[in-house]
Design a protein around this nucleic acid. Sequence first.
DNA 1: CCACCGCCGAAAGTATCTTTCAAAGGTGAC
DNA 2: GTCACCTTTGAAAGATACTTTCGGCGGTGG
Lengths: 301, 301
Amino acid sequence: MKESFTSGAPPAPAALAAKVRTLAPSMTRSMQRVAEAVAGDPAGCAALTVTGLAELTGTSEATVVRTARLLGYPGYRDLRLALAGLAAQQQSGRAPAVTADIAVDDPIADVVAKLAYDEQQTLADTAAGLDTVQLGAAVAALATARRIDIYGIGASGLVAQDLGQKLLRIGLIAHAHSDPHLAVTNAVQLRSGDVAIAITHSGSTGDVIEPLRVAFDHGATTVAITGRPDGPVTQYADHILTTSTARESELRPAAMSSRTSQLLVVDCLFTCVTQRTYETAAPALAASYEALAHRHSPRTR
Amino acid sequence: MKESFTSGAPPAPAALAAKVRTLAPSMTRSMQRVAEAVAGDPAGCAALTVTGLAELTGTSEATVVRTARLLGYPGYRDLRLALAGLAAQQQSGRAPAVTADIAVDDPIADVVAKLAYDEQQTLADTAAGLDTVQLGAAVAALATARRIDIYGIGASGLVAQDLGQKLLRIGLIAHAHSDPHLAVTNAVQLRSGDVAIAITHSGSTGDVIEPLRVAFDHGATTVAITGRPDGPVTQYADHILTTSTARESELRPAAMSSRTSQLLVVDCLFTCVTQRTYETAAPALAASYEALAHRHSPRTR
DNA sequence: CCACCGCCGAAAGTATCTTTCAAAGGTGAC
DNA sequence: GTCACCTTTGAAAGATACTTTCGGCGGTGG
């Protein structure tokens, strides 16, 4: 049973290297050269035309085609396609290399891959660690809140702003504060039925804890979004939403991954609140979208 | 005429679906049909010849080739090769996760899972579609810039602030502007050796384009971070960094995924610049870290 | 040394891809 | 409304890449 390699068998997907080894003994010298080149550098060969591969191996087009046939493909065109697939596969298989820390001399492409990978990891961790009960409670409070205050400083301040912008768009009365004094000034206005949200990665940023404490003392419902569920900020929080903490390094400060994590939590809050208040949120969203349409140049293309 | 948005970048390997989404708005109807078919069934299309794909989509060979060109390939042949690679990848990848859209009645846990998945997808698409040549050029300009201006409005404004904060931390003179008037006022101060960065998802936000144009006219190096590499903003951009565009829906506005995408680009810029200027950046980072330590309560528990 | 056999590549032949060009379709101005 | 202009589109010509044919070359056994 040494024939029928090429008979009923469909073209090989990724078992190409193995097939080359199996069939090598039954090949002629020139064909072996071609097969060797193909098995050795699938990606490179996929970029070559028949003529190119013939020249590279010092053979002729006819030989290349014959080799492709022997390997089970209708012609070189199909071998080339399979080669491209193989190349892509072992390309993606090389992915775990990016788990290493970012080094000073990493090439740009590596930095991009590593950062993307790390942030993806952060998202997965955050989603896995998020307490849906706490989230649900916070959402319920927000959906019916008379007024919402959000406190955040530094990098977390931007996250606070983001949440504030989003909530405004669905018709809620929300305001983000980055100025500690103004934050406290506003916090004293809060009372039962209002919601205060503090965002701090460390959980111990005094300038953010203080307004939350004031809001808490005045009877508002308080929420903390923090990476330290045991930090000082949680003393004054009715509901705690935990963000994940990724390993940090010199080229990847903690602020980077904490921001990613915080934003996911914020998006969850926003989306769930939108669900809850869909009747009023949907038209509000549509209206804000409409209002911005005029700010763009007419000719988008 | 005005092709090659992606500059010297080689054809995309797996960023095809993202690229289709990014470029779809700038495509004509027939081309969209082709792009849709390609994105919808890579494996199936890889098996077709130009003529076959043209018939399948009810268009002509010429249109198919044009679409391939627009997607960044020299011709259909190469698109087909990439398609085969993509098919092989997702064959081995097997990622049929929670791809469904977010519904109004989804339970909280589902919302969290879907949001996290979508954002992860956005990150992957962005990383795959990012032109490292353009990124490198932008980084080089930033690393030696005398002064850096960043323009962004609305949701993109927060991203601009984030980048500004980061660059300040490594000792660069950077400032983010959200006020269009102030932005223009600052832009006229720029000259050769300075860098201006505009961040706009739509690529057509007049309030952001205007300061960039002014900076461009004054000889500054200009960078655009946008989801529309063919938008008006790119007229005045020396370097274009493309963010990915995810499918959007009522419960998942475009602003959400564009922000995720933009932030990844910003992180890449920051990290690469830090690498480049490590000698001065490292001590600056350490100093800013040190300065903030006092702002946290001593007892983190 | 000669005859035979199978491998090999040049060149002709064919399929596939690319370019050109003119007509159809749409858009804005008047 | 309709005219002029620009964009989009597909048919067909042209170029390229792939396949087949066929004769020569080298090895092997008599």
